[in-house]
């Protein structure tokens, strides 16, 4: 049985990766299982300089999901390269560096540094809803996506994934803009902008007032958007948004994802990514499918 998938020329041993921001740099979950079990690890979103992140509370529970407003707290790209890459390289898994900026210049600078470091793939985060400058602002208008991706593409030799925001009217427009400007793959969906209010205090639960929604509740939205984008572009897709089981992963692959990322499910069950992979294997066995790639985009739409 073949579980390996190819994303922009990089072979992942299985289609399960972790979603950026839910997994730190892997240290904590490595206590529960060997990180080599994973197809890849998308690390905590990185910026050029260290970022403190937003004040707490940074999380609120929602029906079958959560809102977060971490705000890209991270030690900066240099420290990542010095301290985290050597750790992650001890494992037989691919490293996906998720990078963000506040300005176009920021994005170019971090992409250049990250692109010259020992990572396997770059994931350009143009969809973070929790930062005041940059982030999602770049990812919600086709023109700015084109402009940014072109400039980043010009300074980066590594495979480039562009991570898309679901907070748009037509995600296929954004996907096409990323494709035509040189993206090698797309990942979707980032979190959906949401809000919760404490009815006793009449205050939002998040100190940032709003935050990004993730978890099982967003799964059908993710599946829909992945299928729309699959039909609009030729690029391989990494699907994410509420994946918690092997069956979820299969569904997302049928919609068009070549690989899937597991994120929020890790908070419920630290073993979630490994269980998702095992669930994929079970499905393939039960259905006599030899190659996981045979699932990609195989949903049969109603007329």
């Amino acid at each position: 049985m073949n579980l390996s998938v190819n994303i922009a020329g990089v072979e992942l041993k299985n289609p399960v990766v972790t979603a950026s921001g839910t997994f730190g740099f892997g240290h904590e979950y490595n206590e529960f299982y060997d990180l080599s079990e994973l197809g890849g690890i998308a690390v905590k979103g990185l910026t050029l300089k260290p970022r403190l992140g937003n004040p707490p509370p940074r999380i609120a529970e929602t029906p079958m999901g959560i809102l977060n407003s971490v705000g890209l707290q991270n030690p900066g790209i240099e420290k990542f390269i010095e301290e985290e890459i050597p750790f992650l390289r001890k494992f037989d898994t691919k490293i996906i560096a998720n990078i963000s900026g506040s300005t176009v210049e920021d994005y170019i600078a971090i992409a250049e540094i990250a692109g010259n470091s020992d990572v396997d793939l770059l994931e350009l985060n143009i969809s973070c809803p929790n930062v005041k400058a940059g982030g999602m602002a770049f990812g919600t208008c086709p023109k700015s996506v084109e402009d940014l991706v072109k400039k980043v593409r010009a300074v980066v030799n590594r495979p480039l994934i562009v991570k898309l925001s679901p907070n748009v009217t037509d995600i296929t427009e954004i996907a096409r803009a990323a494709e035509s400007s040189g993206a090698d793959a797309l990942s979707l969906i980032n979190t959906l902008l949401g809000m919760r209010i404490d009815i006793k205090t009449r205050r939002p639960i998040l100190k940032n007032n709003m935050g990004g929604m993730s978890g099982r509740a967003v799964f059908p939205i993710a599946v829909r958007m992945i299928n729309q984008v699959y039909r609009a572009v030729k690029l391989p897709l990494i699907g994410m948004g509420g994946v918690a089981t092997g069956n979820d992963a299969i569904e997302m692959m049928l919609a068009g994802a070549s690989a899937v990322a597991v994120g929020t499910a890790c908070f419920t069950d630290p073993m979630a990514p490994v269980k998702v992979r095992d669930g994929i294997v079970d499905y393939l066995k039960a259905n006599n499918i030899d190659d996981v790639n045979d699932l990609v985009g195989q949903v049969i739409l109603h007329d």
Partner: peptide
Amino acid sequence: CGIGACLVCA
């Protein structure tokens, strides 16, 4: 997450 990976409990 409760274990230091997600950075929400700042």
